[in-house]
């Protein structure tokens, strides 16, 4: 990639890639110390390190500060990013499919845009919530993957499913009570279960879970409704700008990375 040279104002000019000493092309960050390199440079170095037999296989010392890192984060486009683990090639990017990416973008739209499509109130009033939903697990896994951008979300998924399951059992055993009370408790339980993993996305996630259950649809059919409603095309070459443009029409939500629990979350 050619970079424009000679502009000393450019921050890259003052902060060249420590490996090639040229302006950084395709920003890539190490996951712990956040030092920035060209994607191609740091990956080449990662391969050199990985080829050494004596090395600890799954970490990479930052060339600048020697912090042990586990992956390289790159391709950040406002809502999603790619991640390459040491010694693992790009396994992660193969699991993170277009469907995941698409789903994550759905989370940036306005909450409640499908409320007219699915009748959530009736779902609770009719007691339909007492029946198990066999598509839930599949959907849950995909959405958790989309939100956390981690492949292995089984622990979170089973944790949430377990909480839902015990809720259902206690509902089935106990006396009937006002549906809105049940609804409130359900959402509260799921939120508490998901909060440590999803942070600020929890609230929206709980709404989505409820909506998916109320829809009574399979994962694919549910996605279809979203696609139709938002008139998004699910094309692989969909650029982030397009997505953000459309996203902003639907939503005031500003996409940003929820990599870690934010400090203001710790404050409360």
């Amino acid at each position: 990639m050619k970079q424009v040279e000679g502009s000393s104002e450019c921050s890259d000019g003052a902060n060249p890639c420590p490996i090639c000493l040229s302006p950084v092309s395709q920003d890539a960050y190490l996951d712990r110390c956040f030092h920035k390199y060209c994607y191609s440079c740091i990956v080449r170095w990662m391969k050199v390190i990985a080829s050494r037999p004596s090395r600890q296989a799954y970490s990479l010392k930052c060339p600048l500060c020697k912090t042990e890192n586990f992956s390289v984060i790159y391709g950040y486009d406002g809502s999603t990013f790619q991640r390459q683990y040491v010694n693992q090639g790009t396994v992660n990017s193969t699991f993170y499919s277009e469907a995941h990416k698409y789903r994550l973008q759905c989370y940036y739209t306005d909450a409640g845009i499908l409320n007219d499509t699915f009748n959530v109130t009736r779902y609770w009033k009719s007691g339909k919530y007492l029946q198990p939903n066999k598509w839930l697990q599949h959907w849950l896994k995909r959405d958790l993957q989309a939100l956390t951008q981690e492949e292995d979300v089984d622990i979170i998924m089973h944790h949430i499913l377990g909480v839902m399951d015990s809720f259902l059992k206690s509902e089935q055993r106990g006396q009937r009570r006002a549906p809105d009370l049940s609804q409130k408790e359900f959402k509260c339980l799921v939120a508490n279960a998901a909060q440590p993993f999803l942070g600020r996305r929890t609230e929206r996630f709980v709404d989505e879970v409820e909506l998916f259950l109320a829809s009574g649809l399979t994962m694919d059919a549910y996605d279809e409704v979203y696609t139709k409603h938002l008139r998004w095309k699910r094309q692989p070459e969909e650029t982030s700008e397009d997505a953000e443009d459309r996203g902003s029409k639907h939503a005031a939500t500003i996409p940003y990375l929820y990599l870690f629990n934010d400090s203001d979350e710790e404050a409360d």
């Binding site: 420590p18 490996i19 000493l21 440079c41 170095w45 010392k61 060339p63 600048l64 020697k66």
Partner: peptide, 8 residues
């Protein structure tokens, strides 16, 4: 062993 590409 302790070489780093950030050295010049």
């Amino acid at each position: 062993n302790a070489w780093s590409p950030a050295w010049t």
